[in-house]
């Protein structure tokens, strides 16, 4: 969301930017450059019927996987589909598709939550690796229970 650099400059004493050769030392001219690394979301609890939706795997593959969990040999009565951030849409899409295919047999129960995410700000220059910076931010998540109502 926000530009990582702006966050960095807020917490790190601003070094003189630019390459003004008139300055004496070389170190001071070095602009602080950081690479933003996103850590994996903290702890993914995973039962066999939990499915985490991502934006990398093919949509159809993820849909097929859910379908297989529900029928197939495993025959789970319910599965949990989790989506974070951008993947929320896809998670909803998959849940609705499953429900449509089941011709009304499946029900959905969606919950939402907030997930705290941690980014690492790594200095590009390895010599500067004194103080690793982290930034926490929040993202929304959805958890959709897809189940056969017991009746």
């Amino acid at each position: 969301m926000a530009d990582p650099r702006s966050q960095v400059s807020a917490s790190v004493p601003q070094k003189p930017l630019g390459f003004s050769a008139s300055e004496g030392t070389t170190i001071e001219m070095d602009p602080m450059e950081y690479t933003l690394r996103k850590r994996l979301p903290r702890k993914l609890p995973k039962r066999r019927n939990d499915v985490y939706i991502n934006m990398k795997t093919d949509f159809k593959a993820q849909l097929a996987r859910c379908q297989k969990l529900l029928d197939g040999g495993a025959g789970h009565r319910e599965i949990c589909i989790h989506g974070l951030g951008l993947a929320i849409n896809r998670a909803i899409n998959i849940a609705l598709q499953l429900q449509a295919f089941s011709q009304g047999a499946l029900q959905l129960a969606a919950n939402t939550s907030t997930v705290e995410l941690i980014d690492d700000l790594e200095p590009d220059d390895p010599d500067e690796a004194g103080e690793p910076l982290t930034r926490t931010r929040n993202n929304s998540a959805i958890h959709i229970k897809v189940f056969y109502p017991s009746a």
């Binding site: 807020a10 917490s11 705290e116 700000l121 690796a129 103080e131 690793p132 982290t134 926490t136 931010r137």
Partner: peptide, 18 residues
């Protein structure tokens, strides 16, 4: 209790030993 607009927090970053 959490505030939504958390930015870099120094004490926290020190936890992750450099």
């Amino acid at each position: 209790k959490r505030s939504f607009d958390q930015t870099v927090s120094e004490p926290q970053s020190k936890r992750f030993c450099p």
